[in-house]
Design a protein around this nucleic acid. Structure first.
Length: 423
RNA sequence: GGAGAGGUACCCAAGUGGCUGAAGGGGCGGGUUUGCUAAACCUGUAGUGGGGUGUAUACCCUAGCGAGAGUUCGAAUCUCUCCCUCUCCGCCA
């Protein structure tokens, strides 16, 4: 959410930013709505002032056993008017808020302007671990099924399409990845958390999933609770409503959780294997930062995520998203993409974003400066990494000609010393 | 799920319609005195959101006693709805 004052004072800037995101938005209504809000508010507060004074006078009169009838009569009318105006002000306020909740964040100046993913910028790449295959590398779903470590038909029978069941060494590999990635992020100074996987509406609104993206969420029938689409939601909401003291910042959290996404509107896309599922495991890292150094913190968070791929020895590149491809709440986003030799393509495996004060304003997370003034903090998050997609990347990059898969060295301690996955 | 008790500031807590724009403790900040790992006394302690005036410092108004609605000239206090916490019972990994 953007600050209403900032929006009103910087219309040109906002409208340009929205245009860069590929949105056509006019702020005329919002600005006049807010003007009306301020005028009514001033008027009603003056009436309230009058009422407060008169109430006191009435109290004094009554105590002195004098007649207060006239004043009471007068105040009846004032009170009626206050009630009327309060309703009006509230209506306008909620309209303003509703509008603000649908406005995305303003992209940072360093973000390239562009229409879609074709205009994203590759910032750097590390191909030192890219292998030359002397055979035609296969896709991960193919490898997984022939090794009998991925069972899609069973998962579909139990749930529906876009679910997968891992078995045996596959389940072990997934668990190893989760533990390895968690341990690394803990080493990087993040505090591990096991959060609720179901959260309420307020939390979903805080991070920006609601109200705009309700169709992406699984919702409980009898309770006002939603399955988390990412641990970003519970982690970022940990400090909602709080004023954090500056010496605690940055706060860093990590969680490994299943994530649930309806993937509405992606029918027919990435239907094979582990790339786009309704349920997947992900290690998420979140930072609460002072406003001043959030962009430095973003670089750090990115390299924390990147470190996993370096250790796993998987070729990857860092992509800076352009304005048209960036998520709703982000001011700046780097994607980490891994090389998938079977698919002969790059795949997003992590998305690291600075949300600036966009989420903090929704959640009301603030900090106290050295000069005692209070301001919104900045939130950041990134995957470190998505386990399912990392699983796929390991299969494709570590496959051998005979259909087996080597276990990356760093994972072996987590897999009871297992060096190779075979049948 | 059933029954009961609660939710007041950083914490504990008093408070059933108007000198409560919230008593009293504790904690924390400042001060005084005596002096040694501190005590006693004095004093401050509603932060914040919103609106306005002014501009380096400020001031005024308004909201705020779990949340929302209602009654009333006036609500922490009365009524309703919801949320949360605790205790007992039931169920349960």
């Amino acid at each position: 959410m953007l600050d209403i004052r900032f929006v009103c004072d910087n219309r040109k800037k906002i409208e340009k930013a929205m245009k860069n995101r590929g949105m056509k938005i006019s702020l005329d209504d919002l600005v006049s709505l807010d003007k009306a809000r301020r005028e009514s508010l001033k008027e009603v507060e003056e009436l309230k002032h009058k009422r407060n004074n008169s109430s006191e006078k009435i109290a004094v009169l009554k105590r002195e056993k004098k007649d207060a009838g006239n004043l009471i009569k007068e105040m009846q009318e004032v009170s009626r008017r206050i009630k009327e105006m309060d309703t009006e002000v509230k209506k306008v306020e909620s309209k303003v808020r509703e509008f603000l909740l649908t406005l995305p964040n303003i992209p940072h100046d360093s973000v390239p302007v562009g229409k879609d993913l074709k205009e994203n910028k590759v910032v750097r790449e590390d191909l030192s671990n890219k292998k030359a295959f002397d055979f035609e590398p296969r896709e991960h779903a193919d490898i997984g099924e022939s090794l009998d470590i991925m069972d899609i038909p069973s998962a579909v029978k139990l749930a529906e399409s876009r679910f997968v069941m891992l078995k045996g060494k596959g389940a072990l590999l997934e668990r190893a990845l989760m533990r390895f990635m968690l341990d690394e992020q803990i080493k990087n100074g993040y505090l591990e958390v096991m959060p609720p996987l179901l959260v309420n509406k307020k939390a979903m609104t805080g991070t920006g999933q609601l109200p705009k993206f309700e169709a992406e969420l699984y919702r409980c029938r009898d309770d006002e609770l939603y399955l988390i689409p990412t641990a970003e939601v519970p982690l970022t909401n940990i400090h909602s409503g709080q004023i954090l003291s500056e010496d605690r910042l940055p706060l860093k959290y990590v969680a490994c959780t299943p994530c649930f996404r309806r993937e509405a509107g992606s029918y027919g896309k990435d239907t094979k294997g582990l790339i786009r599922n309704h349920q997947f495991n992900k290690v998420e890292i979140v930072k609460f930062s002072k406003p001043g150094d959030s962009y430095d913190q973003l670089e750090g968070l990115l390299s924390d995520a990147e470190g996993i791929l370096k250790l796993l020895k998987i070729p990857y590149r860092v992509v800076l998203l352009c304005t048209g491809d960036m998520g709703f709440g982000a001011a700046k986003t780097y994607d980490l993409e891994v090389w998938m030799p079977g698919e002969n393509n790059w795949r997003e495996i992590s998305s690291c974003s600075n949300f600036t004060d966009f989420q903090a304003r929704r959640m009301n997370i603030r900090h106290r400066d050295a000069d005692k003034s209070v301001s919104f903090i900045h939130t950041l998050n990134g995957s470190g990494l998505a386990a399912g997609r990392t699983f796929a990347a390991v299969l494709e990059n570590y496959q051998a000609k005979d259909g087996t898969v080597d276990v990356p060295e760093v994972l072996r301690p987590y897999m009871n010393g297992l060096e190779r996955i075979d049948r």
